[in-house]
Structures are given as structure tokens and as C-alpha cells.
Design a protein around this nucleic acid. Structure first.
Length: 284
DNA sequence: AATCAGTGCAACCGCTTGGTT
DNA sequence: AAACCAAGCGGTTGCACTGAT
């Protein structure tokens, strides 16, 4: 089966020669690529337009950074992958000079193995032992990303340490939520919070938390990012505004470095169970 | 020296998306 | 609404290279 995009022409395939590279670079730097399907003819190449485009994007573009990935880049890939999954093009946008193909190859050949060696599931970024646990109960699943596991709660842990469990569960849910934020979906955090509370036994401390949850549930957190600065803005739909402001001040120090367009956190998004360390862990 | 397995990277394939007619 | 096309994307393949035997 030949190329559907250029089946009428005899095209060369396989590795590019330096001469072909030179022709393509010369053509694009002089005239731009325009319509890729016309590039091979105009540049004097016996390649299909798709092949030219790929060669340019992945190898010949002047702004590409060559060489191996540094530690910072590796960290970024892992962090963004945790949130976005295998969306290599999206991930590559956070790595100037790197292509989606390069990131994907680096992930498959290197990072994946490192994570497995660390006992982490490269798909979910959870501990492998936890990923295979059977003592879990699914309470919600809103993920639109196939790599994400349904939101689960370890009920044993919940009984022993509900707050920790809730935080851990929210952590998992946040990952799912983050994976779909770009599609402008909203997570029903108020419902999640209610279910979390139902799992644990009510205590005085939890009642205090309940009040905080309710206050936080009336908050709308707006995150905006632009070239100059990122900011999270609080607005309220009612309730104890002083408590809301305290919650906001106490929990919204963190950034959302992987969201390059503004989003509005869903009503009921509750940072109360997150401290800065967890928030940092979530978004990084 | 020859062979083989493992690895990394470049390129390809097929599908999806978005725009145009 | 349907058909078509170009571009974008992620998964997969092919091949050169390297190290072990």
C-alpha cells in the first residue's frame, strides 16, 4: 500500500540524504513551506509532502535543540505526562526546541524504564503495588483520558486515616481532572467531597472540615496565565467569605505551570484538603 | 571475527481534526 | 449535510549502532 497522499508520484522513502536535507532547507528558508503537498515538487525532491513536513518539523527546523535531554527536561516530561498522559505534542510545547517525536522516543526508551525501576506505573504514575491492589472501590470516574485509571479509594486506608485518604483520593481525582481541563470539562468537586466525607466517621475535626468544605464549595477559583505572570483569583457565590479568603490564602500559593491557557476551576473545587506540599506534588 | 540481542532514533502509517467548497 | 483536502497527532516499524557472547 503506497502513500495515499502521493500515490500518483514515485516517491523515495527511508532516511534522508544530506543533499535532500539541503534542498528542503533551501526551499523552506527561501519560500516558506506553504502547502506541504506542493513542497516536494517546488524543492526538487522525490518525497511526499508529508515526509517533507515531518523531516522539517522533527529534524531540520532551525529552532530545534539537539542533544540529550537534561534533568530539568526529564522532570518536566514526567510531570506533564502525569497530568496529560500520552499527549506528546502537548508535552513538547513545554520543552522549547523539542519535538513531540523526540519526547515520545525519550519516554519510551528511557523514562518509562526509570519509572518502572522506581516501582511506579508509567501510565498512572502510581505505585505499581497500589495499581494492582484489589481492595479498592470506585466512587467516581470522569476521566476522558484513556491512560487514567478510574478514581478509586482504598477503604481500609480511609477508615484508618480519612483525611490522608481524602487527600490521596483528591490527588488521583485531580490528575483525572487535569487531564480533561483542556477540553473545558468540569469535575463535580462538591460531590466528590461529599462522598469522601461519607466514607469516614464524623468527628469534631471533620465537622470543622465540613464547614470549610462548604465554604470552599462556594468559591470559584479562576486561574489565568499569560506571558508576564500567572495568577489565581478568588470569587465567591456566597457563604462565609472570610473563611473562603483564609482558605484561599492558605492554599493557593501554588502555580499551574502546565496549563498554558486560562481555565476556570469548577465551582466546588476545594483546596482545603491540600496543603502546599500536596498541591505542589499534584501540579508538578 | 561473527553473531545476536538490545537500544535509540528517524521515519512511516493510519486516524482524527478543522477548514473549505 | 456531505465530500474533500491539508495538517496534526500518536502508535508502530525499520534500521543503524553497540555491547555481550
Amino acid at each position: 500500500m503506497g502513500h495515499h497522499c502521493c500515490s500518483k508520484q514515485k516517491v523515495k522513502r527511508g532516511l534522508w540524504s544530506p543533499e535532500e536535507d539541503e534542498k528542503l532547507v533551501r526551499h523552506i528558508t527561501s519560500y516558506g513551506h506553504g502547502c506541504w503537498s506542493s513542497v516536494p515538487k517546488l524543492a526538487g525532491l522525490q518525497r511526499c509532502g508529508k515526509s517533507c513536513r515531518l523531516r522539517w518539523i522533527n529534524y531540520l527546523r532551525p529552532d530545534l535543540k539537539r542533544g540529550s535531554f537534561n534533568e530539568q527536561e526529564e522532570r518536566t516530561i514526567i510531570d506533564v505526562h502525569r497530568i496529560l498522559g500520552n499527549r506528546w505534542a502537548q508535552i513538547a510545547k513545554h520543552l522549547p526546541g523539542r519535538t513531540d517525536n523526540e519526547v515520545k522516543n525519550f519516554w519510551n526508551s528511557c523514562i518509562k524504564k526509570k519509572l518502572i525501576a522506581q516501582g511506579l506505573d508509567p501510565n498512572t504514575h502510581n505505585l505499581l503495588s497500589l495499581s494492582s491492589s484489589t481492595n479498592k472501590r470506585s466512587i467516581s470516574s470522569t476521566s476522558a483520558s484513556s491512560h487514567q485509571q478510574p478514581f478509586t479509594v482504598d477503604t481500609t486506608a480511609a477508615a484508618a486515616a480519612p483525611v490522608v485518604s481524602a487527600a490521596a483520593s483528591l490527588h488521583g481525582q485531580f490528575n483525572s481532572a487535569a487531564a480533561v481541563l483542556n477540553e473545558s470539562s468540569c469535575i463535580d468537586w462538591a460531590a466528590v467531597t461529599q462522598q469522601l466525607l461519607a466514607l469516614g466517621q464524623e468527628s469534631e475535626q471533620q465537622q470543622q472540615q465540613q464547614r470549610q468544605h462548604e465554604a470552599a464549595a462556594a468559591c470559584v477559583y479562576k486561574y489565568k496565565a499569560d506571558d508576564d505572570e500567572d495568577e489565581v483569583v478568588l470569587s465567591s457565590t456566597g457563604g462565609d467569605q472570610q473563611l473562603q479568603q483564609e482558605l484561599f490564602d492558605a492554599t493557593c500559593h501554588f502555580d499551574f505551570p502546565f496549563l498554558d491557557s486560562a481555565f476556570i476551576a469548577p465551582q466546588g473545587f476545594n483546596p482545603m484538603v491540600m496543603d502546599d506540599a500536596l498541591a505542589w506534588d499534584i501540579v508538578n
